[in-house]
């Protein structure tokens, strides 16, 4: 079973976002970047399937030298191969999808795994793009996967419940939190990952379809009516919620 896992490099969740001098992107100074948390679930599931069924796991990322660090995280977790599709500058999800689809069309993996979204642009669009470009079945936001031969039954999270989806391999999955508990790489594996080769491919150039005009930090003034914990305080807040905010 050959599995391709598309991964991305994102600011750590504790990052305070500051808008950069161009007014369109974030200021990267002092930002710690990590492997996208949802990609960890995707990678972990890929590794478990490989451990059960044999085959190999290839991690792929679109970006520059900085992404090699992210790919090495994937190698340390247990990916067999790593591929960097080299691209500079700003690019949108359509660009990333076209490039990953181009690679996948040549390598024909049995499964393509992705995180359900990357926690920078939160678009949830890459899995659908890949399904369209590669004409493959897709199950997004999965919390459980059962594979029996070529038959697949997967659970996907929807508002207020789960959908049980039936499909066949080869297919594309996007991983939701809850699918598994990703392993922590061990120190020897981290050391070994530093020496593993990373295959490099030049990105095919595609015009961006989305242009970012500006980025801003939302500011919303709040009423800040803070009270203590007496019975009167509690009654006061309930009254304000009812009469001032009119929300209860």
């Amino acid at each position: 079973m050959n599995i391709l896992v598309a991964i991305s490099r994102v600011p750590d969740t504790t990052t305070k976002i500051i808008v950069g001098s161009d007014g369109k992107t974030i200021d990267n100074n002092n930002v710690k970047f990590i492997l996208n948390p949802y990609d960890e679930f995707a990678l972990e599931e890929a590794l478990r399937l490989k451990e059960k069924n044999g085959g190999n796991v290839t991690a792929i990322s679109v970006g520059n030298d900085l992404n090699t660090e992210t790919l090495r995280n994937a190698l340390a977790m247990g990916a067999d191969n790593a591929v960097l599709i080299r691209a500079e500058g700003e690019f949108d999800s359509y660009f990333v999808a076209k490039n990953i689809a181009d690679y996948a069309a040549k390598s024909n993996p049995d499964i393509i795994f992705l995180g359900k979204q990357s926690i920078d642009f939160d678009s949830l669009q890459l899995p659908s793009y890949l399904a369209e470009f590669l004409n493959l079945p897709l199950v997004t936001i999965v919390t459980k996967i059962d594979i029996n031969g070529n038959e697949v039954t997967a659970e996907r999270e929807i508002e207020g419940g789960k959908e049980i989806v039936s499909t066949t391999l080869p297919c594309i999955f996007s991983a939701q939190k809850g699918l598994n508990n990703p392993r922590y790489p061990k120190l020897p594996d981290i050391m070994k990952a530093k020496k593993k080769p990373i295959e490099e491919i030049q990105a095919i150039s595609i015009d961006n379809l989305i242009e970012i005009i500006k980025m801003e930090i939302p500011s919303r003034s709040r009423l800040n009516k803070i009270f203590g914990n007496t019975d009167e305080d509690i009654q006061n807040v309930v009254k304000l919620l009812h009469e001032e905010a009119k929300v209860i």
Binding site: P11, K24, I119, D120, L209, E211, I212, K214, E216
Partner: peptide
């Protein structure tokens, strides 16, 4: 122009679709 939250809402981008 379309506004959308990014970084889970820590910032908001204004975008234009070119197609």
């Amino acid at each position: 122009y379309f506004k959308k939250p990014v970084y889970a809402g820590k910032s908001i981008i204004t975008t234009q679709i070119k197609s």
